[in-house]
Nucleic acid binder design. Structure first.
Length: 819
RNA sequence: GCCGGGGUGGUGAAAUGGUAGACACAGAGGACUUAAAAUCCUCUGGACCUAACGGUCCGUGCGGGUUCGACUCCCGCCCCCGGCACCA
């Protein structure tokens, strides 16, 4: 029953109808997911939010409201829609709050999540809340741990030493974001250092090629695909080893994309951390080398890789023999070579590489030229010639084109057993260890006997995160869990003898790498998901979220999906078939909305002032969905005013007794055209122009007598408005005499015949300038239009007696005369 | 530095080779009202001509080009936003 029975209230009052319908929808279970698997499905998903204590702002709604419109629109178009919400609850902010304020995440997370949920309901967003999930719930992270073990069993999880930032004052590991100007964020006078720790990694590099290739099968924004390609950074080349002079058996292995320039190699450069450095450095160079290595290790990666900085390096005193030229070349170290890429060593061909050129110039090293430009000119002596060309000064390579020379060198090094063709990736393996409390414990046990590293058996999962009163760090670099003996000390699952648990927890990205599968069967307790449910619902049909997750989250989730595919757990290779990025909403001052800046606008305040529907419409109307924009509250007055006008139009119709009506041709045409436009624009996420089309129709229809407008027009209008403004849509629908929710209605269909224009305006241009407009019947023949145009007084005047040299006719649109 | 996105009225924007500024906000004038709010109506890119009807020119960051025709395509430049950062 409508809140206001007929006759409708004169005034539109969102405060009266919005809470009523929200309660009613919840009572009737309107948004529960249908379980009829013979129907076409649509899985709609927004990126898993972290439930922050600050709650949602109107900026966040620029993601959730358009998504909600899509869900409602798809439902009206006959799809069985899955649209659920959950919480990416593990992570640093909750742990920091626990440390600083003594608030336990186990209390704050549910509290903050409940607030998000309240705000989403307040704004009329329709989710199936029976499917709500929380990544910090043992019933969830049990399966995150299970996936870790799957990775481990498949040889994709391994331990290796990695260095982390360390603050002596906090006696703990710091994340990159906690290092400010080389100092600890909480102790600005304390310089951070690097600490080496043995940690867990996932072998994502094993999937590099498939992550690259399968971008072809998804419909994602091109810029996001490009960023992933650049991040993976596949490059083909060769790995070659040169002998170190005077150190029998020692070689410098390096990777190069330009093996063809090997005759032009005049020195080599190692990363300062390269293991060979201490072995080959000569006594007289040792002091200088040690000092350089120490300062390189102090630098952050950003500083070290800065392009504005002049290149620096130090000679080790050692030489390598270039087997192609037979010459001995000096081995240097420099911080522009990274241990994490390739082999941590390069051959320097300064004639063909600009960085090597700058380095050679600075230190007075030889700059041979081994590639000549194809056009026969000489290379610019002031810089390296980095393009492909003809190989010169290079023995058996002379005269070969670059591509052929690359092949020839690859064959040569293979035959002489000093190298091979290979591929290197910029992407590194994924470090998943966190020395933190608030995460899923890594399910591994270290046996004190002979069993070594032992995975926790599936039936012993979850490894529960213990309750702690004090999450101070351990002081040793291990997580606070190391302070809990009941957690650490356990029995070896293999031999039953004494053992210790792994105290590192899993990176939060692990939780968000499979959550989209959990929504299909959120309460299933025998596996992470029920196969049949996943086969029906997955993959995700539309994934909506910010472009800031372009690489990490989206790559990790894709990798997990491929691992599951390989393990036979699922039947698809890509998790998100269509991806769209909503534009960022900045505060009115153009800055990020944040509590500290005091520029946050909450949905609560906007709903109180204008109502949820008016706020929703402004979120849709303020600009294109994918473009960033600044928040501007003034626009909400416009959408609120629009809703009062819709209310008035429907009320007039209801008061006239809801006549079937007999609309004239113009009215019919406008109604059918509007249905066509709104349908098309909602399909393409063009919410702003879809709403503009509805506003346009209102401006026309509001003047008409109810009997002219008629039932089809009014009802179609209310149904089309309902996904965008669900509360007023429902209220008006009931006022029109319907017992069933508008949100269960079918989307209106337009008749292409009725939508067609009968009269068209043909623009007449002379030399590109508009000189007249002709109103003629649609489909008028060119000859007739020509005749009319050439008789038009304006055309005659502008032609000024000159004969037309050429006439171009675009049917029903334009006649262009060239004089 | 490289990669990506963008620059249109006072403001948010629309138009993806065919009437630039749809739809709104703000503003001005008017109606209703004792008054105000709300609501409704009219005008609203700039310059100029006209008593008026109407008309002319300019105008989508800047400079070129392609085309009968360019916000849209091409070349060069400037500015803003985002991402990545010496990747061998």
């Amino acid at each position: 029953m409508a809140v206001s029975r007929t006759p409708m209230d004169e005034r539109y009052d969102p405060k009266k109808i919005e809470p009523y319908w929200q309660a009613e929808w919840e009572r009737s279970g309107l948004y529960l997911t249908g379980d009829d698997r013979s129907r076409a499905k649509f899985y709609l998903l927004e990126m898993f939010p972290y439930p922050s204590g600050n709650g949602l702002s109107v900026g966040h709604l620029h993601n959730y409201v358009p998504s909600d419109v899509v869900g409602r629109f798809k439902r009206m178009n006959g799809y069985n829609v899955l649209h659920a919400m959950g919480w990416d609850a593990f992570g640093l902010p909750a742990e920091n709050e626990a440390l600083l304020k003594g608030l336990h995440p186990k209390q704050t997370v549910p509290q903050y999540a409940a607030n998000f949920k309240r705000q989403l309901k307040l704004t009329g967003c329709a989710y199936d809340w029976t499917r709500e999930i929380n990544s910090s719930d043992p019933a969830y992270y049990r399966w995150t741990q299970w996936f870790f073990l799957l990775m481990y069993r498949r040889g994709l999880a391994y331990r290796a030493v990695g260095s982390q930032w360390w603050c002596d004052e906090c006696r703990t590991i710091l994340a990159n974001e906690q290092v400010v100007n080389g100092c600890c964020w909480r102790h600005p006078e304390t310089l951070v250092t690097k600490k080496d720790l043995e940690q867990w990694y996932f072998k994502i590099t094993a999937y590099a090629d498939r992550l690259l290739d399968d971008l072809a099968i998804v419909d994602w924004p091109e810029p996001i695909k490009l960023m992933q390609r650049n991040w993976i950074g596949r490059s083909e080349g060769a790995e070659i080893a040169f002998d170190v002079v005077g150190h029998p058996g020692k070689t410098v292995r390096f990777f190069t994309t330009r093996p063809d320039t090997v005759f032009g190699v005049s020195f080599m450069v190692l990363a300062p951390e390269h293991p060979l450095v201490p072995e080959i450095t000569t006594a007289e160079q040792r002091a200088a080398i040690n000092e350089y290595v120490a300062q390189a290790r102090r630098q952050s990666e950003i500083e070290r890789l800065s392009t504005v900085k002049e290149k620096t390096g130090v000679f080790t005193g050692a030489f390598a023999r270039n087997p192609f030229t037979g010459k001995d070349i000096p081995i240097w170290i420099a911080d522009y070579v990274l241990m994490g890429y390739g082999t941590g060593a390069i051959m320097a061909a300064p004639g063909e590489d600009q960085r090597d050129f700058e380095f050679a110039t600075k230190y007075g090293l030889e700059i041979p030229r081994v590639t000549a430009p194809l056009d026969g000119s000489a290379p610019d002596p002031g810089r390296a010639f980095t393009e492909h060309g003809i190989t010169v000064n290079s023995g058996f390579l002379n005269g070969l084109k670059t591509a052929d020379a690359i092949q020839a060198v690859a064959r040569w090094v293979d035959e002489h057993n000093i190298g091979r063709s290979t591929v290197t990736y910029r992407m590194r393996d994924w470090l998943i260890s966190r020395q933190r409390y608030w995460g899923a414990p890594i399910p591994i046990v270290y046996c004190k006997g002979d069993c070594g590293i032992v995975p926790v058996p599936d039936e012993q999962l979850p490894v529960l995160l213990p309750d702690m009163k004090d999450y101070q760090p351990s002081g040793t670099g291990r997580s606070p869990l190391a302070n809990v003996p009941e957690f650490v000390n356990t029995a070896c699952p293999k031999c039953g003898g004494p053992a210790e648990r792994e105290t590192d927890t899993l990176d939060g990205f692990a939780c968000s790498s499979w959550y989209f599968l959990r929504f299909a069967s959120p309460h299933y307790d025998r596996a992470p998901f029920e196969r049949a449910a996943v086969d029906y619902w997955l993959p995700v049909d539309l994934y909506i979220g910010g472009a800031e997750h372009a690489v990490m989250h989206l790559l990790y989730a894709r990798m997990w999906t491929k691992v599951m595919f390989d393990a036979g757990l699922i039947g698809f290779k890509e998790p998100f078939m269509v991806l769209r990025n909503q534009g960022m909403v900045w505060a009115a001052d153009g800055q990020k909305m944040s509590k500290s800046r005091g520029n946050v606008v909450t949905p609560d305040a906007m709903v109180e002032k204008y109502g949820a529907d008016a706020l929703r419409l402004w979120e849709l109307f303020m600009g294109p969905f994918e473009e960033p924009t600044n928040w501007n509250e003034d626009g909400v007055t416009g959408t609120a005013r629009y809703l009062t006008r819709v209310w008035a139009m429907v009320r007039r119709y209801v008061q006239a007794g809801c006549p079937q009506g007999s609309p004239d041709a113009e009215t019919l045409r406008r109604v059918h055209k509007t249905i066509r436009t709104v349908t098309d624009h909602l399909d393409r996420q063009r919410f702003n122009t879809a709403l503009a089309a509805l506003m346009d129709l209102l401006n026309y229809a509001a003047r008409l007598e109810p009997a002219v407008l008629g039932r089809f027009a009014i009802e179609s209008y209310v149904v089309m408005l309902a996904p965008m403004a669900p509360h007023i849509g429902e209220e008006l629908w009931r006022a029109l005499g319907h017992d069933r929710s508008v949100h269960l209605e079918s989307w209106p269909k337009y008749d292409p015949e009725l939508a067609r224009d009968e009269l068209v305006t043909i623009v007449v241009q002379i030399n590109g300038k508009v000189r007249d407009r002709l109103h003629v019947g649609a489909g008028t023949a060119e000859d007739e239009v020509r005749g009319m145009a050439l008789k038009s007084p304006a055309v005659v005047r502008h032609l000024d007696g000159k004969p037309p040299r050429k006439i171009i006719y675009v049917p029903d649109k334009l006649l262009s005369i060239v004089a």
